[in-house]
Amino acid sequence: MATNNTNFYDLYRHGSLGVSLTDALDDLIGAERIDPQLAMKVLTQFDRIVAEALSEKVKARLTFKGSLDTYRFCDEVWTFLIKNVTFKMDNGAHTVQVDKVKIVSCSAKRGDEK
């Protein structure tokens, strides 16, 4: 865990949880209550903890179908743009329909193995 800085993606910073954390940190930095370096430490901790929590605490499963509009694979990151997607959660008990969704996905291998 000593090298956890490099082991976890900062991808989740772009979710609502990460954005709100970044905003809160920005406020504190703007008020000169904390250093930007300290904020970076918080964010790296956040990267680790989110990844752990999502893998350990969450059991929910999800399936989705749709028509793929764009795909991209660059630097081990898949980006899909899918249209007319139907998400099924809880074994189909709950469905959500969206006209398009963007999926940004990093390799699960790197987080686990290294």
Binding site: L54, V58, A60, L62, K65, G66, I82, V85, M89, V96
Partner: peptide, 16 residues
């Protein structure tokens, strides 16, 4: 994040 709601999942399979 869809339709203003957020969901977390442990595993997802997609076919498209």
């Amino acid at each position: 994040t869809v339709n203003g709601r957020e969901y977390v999942f442990h595993k997802a399979t997609g076919e498209y």
